[in-house]
Amino acid sequence: MKTRSNTTARSQRKLNYAYGLILFLLALTGFAQMPIFKRYYIADIPGLGWLAEFYTTHFLHYLGAAAILAIAAYFAAEFFLVTRKYRRLSASGGVRAAILLGIIVSGILLVIRNTFFVPFSPQVVIVLLLAHLGLTMAFLLVLLYCRLAGKPWTVPRHEEAQS
C-alpha cells in the first residue's frame, strides 16, 4: 500500500511539473506574440532566437494550449470524481480556477476566430485579446502570491468545519 501511495505521489509530482512547464511555455510564447523579444535583445541570447519567430511561437502556443486543456480537464475531472469527497477548493484555488477558466475560454474563442467561419466583430476580438493578456498577467501574479504564501489549491474537508 505504501508503494502504491509513493507511486501515486510521484505521478502527481510529475504532473505538477508538467503543468508548471506548460504554463511557462504558454506565458513565454504568449508574450512573444507581441514584438518585444527582438526589440529588447532577448531573442539575441543564444538559443532564444526562436522567440522572435512569430509563426514558431504561435505554433508552440497552440501546442501548449492543447496540453493545458488536457491537464486542466484531467485535474477538473479528478477533482469532481474523487478529490472533492475529501478536499474542497480553497479560496485562492477558486480564484486561480476562475482566472484560468477565463484564459482558456478567451483563448478558445480566439482559436475559433482564427480557424473557422465565426463572425466576431473587431470590438469583440479586441476585448478577447485584452482579456486573454490581462487575465494571464493576473494569473501569473496570483500564482506567485500563492507560491510565496504557500496557498494550496485544495484543503481537507475537515478544515471547512473548523473554519
Binding site: Y62, A66, Y74, A76, A77, L81
Partner: peptide, 16 residues
Amino acid sequence: LTAAMLIAPFAGIAAA
C-alpha cells in the same frame, strides 16, 4: 493543431 485542441480535454477526462 486545432484538432488536437478539440481532442485534448476528452483525453484529460478519460485519463482521470
